[in-house]
Computed example of a mutant assay.
Amino acid sequence: MATKEEILRELYPEDLFHYADGLTLGEAEVLQETRRLIEKHLRPVINEYWEAPDFPFEEFYAVAKGAQIMNNPKLFEGREGNYKPSELYIAFLYLELARFDASIATFFTVHGGLCYNTILLGGDERQQKEFLPKLAAFDWQGCFALTEPLSGSDIAGGLATTAERVGDKWILNGEKRWIGGSDTADVVPVFARDVADGKVKCFIV
């Protein structure tokens, strides 16, 4: 079995400031496996998808699920009970994906960053238990609906999408724009302004 230092020399010879030294052995092993699976599944087909244009869902999930990039037990050694791997690991995971292909990295940024973190930071315990494990396992795909056509991402005063409580339901009404992954996502956190109190709230759709 390779040591952490050997894996890091293989993966990041350009890391002159030794940022990767802060990774655990388990994190380094997951990153190494991620790169191996990228080369196996995504490298042979990525140019075809650029020409299509389309997204290689099957090949991406072969990488994400194969290496368990969000929920591998190796990522939580000494961090038991956490829903999210360390921020340093996540940074190097983004590096692995982006150095291969910017669109692959963007897809993960939306799913594992914007959607996942919104529920992690803003969801209650029931919502976290219901949604986060499925998102981390890539059984569900997530995206993020904040930006609007007339005001961008201005939640201070420009957010026009409304939310109204009617009985035991919430009615959302408005427009969103540039919601990457919205046509295939299973879970969409949608930001809207509550008509009752004027406050911006987030709704898992």
Score class of each variant (00 low, 15 high):
Ile46Leu: 13
Thr184Ile: 15
Ala196His: 14
Gly123Ile: 03
Thr24Ala: 13
Asp139Ser: 03
Asp186Trp: 03
Asp183Pro: 00
Leu172Gln: 07
Pro44Trp: 12
Gly66Tyr: 01
Pro149Cys: 11
Val200Leu: 11
Glu87Val: 10
Leu88Tyr: 07
Val30Ile: 14
Ile104Ala: 13
Asp15Leu: 06
Lys65Pro: 01
Phe191Asp: 01
Cys115Asp: 07
Glu125Asn: 02
Ala105Val: 00
Pro13Leu: 12
Thr3Lys: 13
Gly142Asn: 07
Pro56Glu: 09
Gly157Gln: 13
Lys65Thr: 04
Lys4Pro: 08
Gly81His: 07
Arg165Ser: 13
Asn173Phe: 09
Ser103Met: 13
Ala102Ile: 07
Phe76Gly: 08
Leu146Phe: 12
Met70Trp: 11
Val187Cys: 11
Val205Thr: 11
Gly66Ala: 12
Val30Phe: 03
Tyr116Pro: 02
Ala160Gly: 05
Phe203Met: 09
Trp178Asp: 14
Val166Cys: 02
Leu114His: 15
Arg126His: 11
Tyr83Pro: 00
Leu132Ile: 07
Ala20Phe: 05
Ala52Glu: 14
Arg43Asp: 12
Phe108His: 10
Leu42Thr: 04
Gln68Pro: 00
Thr109Asn: 09
Pro73Cys: 11
Ser86Asn: 11
Leu75Glu: 08
Glu130Asn: 14
Ile7His: 05
Glu5Phe: 06
Thr106Glu: 13
Val30Asp: 06
Thr118His: 06
Leu93Asn: 10
Asn71Ala: 10
Gly198Phe: 08
Cys143Pro: 02
Pro56Met: 09
